[in-house]
C-alpha cells in the first residue's frame, strides 16, 4: 500500500466521520469540532492531490491557506457558540431552534 492510497483512505474516513457527526451531533461546540474534521480531511486531500498530479507545491500552498482560512471560520463559529451559551444558556441544538416553517 503506497502513501497516496493511505491518505485517500484517511481522507475518506475523516469525511465519513465528519458528515456522520454533522447529522447526529446535537451540541454546538461538537458541531464546530466535527466541521474541523471535515476541513482537515480536505487539507489532506489537497496534499495528496498535489502529489498525484505532480505539482506538490500547489497542493501544499493551498493546504496552508486553507488552514488559515478555516481557523477564521472556526473562531467565528466558536464566538457565536459562546454568545449562544451566554444568551440562551444552552448549546443543545433542539433547544435553540425556534425559527422554523
Amino acid at each position: 500500500m503506497n502513501l497516496i492510497t493511505l491518505i485517500v483512505i484517511v481522507v475518506a474516513c475523516l469525511l465519513g466521520v465528519g458528515l456522520y457527526g454533522l447529522l447526529i451531533t446535537r451540541n454546538l461546540i461538537k458541531i464546530v469540532i466535527v466541521l474541523q474534521l471535515l476541513v482537515k480531511a480536505v487539507v489532506l486531500a489537497f496534499v495528496a492531490a498535489g502529489k498525484v498530479s505532480g505539482h506538490p507545491g500547489i497542493g501544499e500552498s493551498v493546504a496552508a491557506t486553507v488552514i488559515v482560512a478555516d481557523t477564521v471560520v472556526a473562531a467565528v463559529a466558536l464566538a457565536l457558540a459562546v454568545q449562544v451559551r451566554m444568551r440562551l444558556g444552552t448549546l443543545d441544538i433542539p433547544k435553540i431552534s425556534s425559527l422554523r416553517g
Binding site: I31, I93, R100
Partner: peptide
C-alpha cells in the same frame, strides 16, 4: 411542504448531503 423546513441544524445538513 412547510413541515420540511424543520429549523433544526441536523436536518438542514441532511438536506445538503
Amino acid at each position: 411542504v412547510q413541515k420540511t423546513q424543520t429549523g433544526e441544524m441536523n436536518w438542514n445538513v441532511v438536506g445538503i448531503i
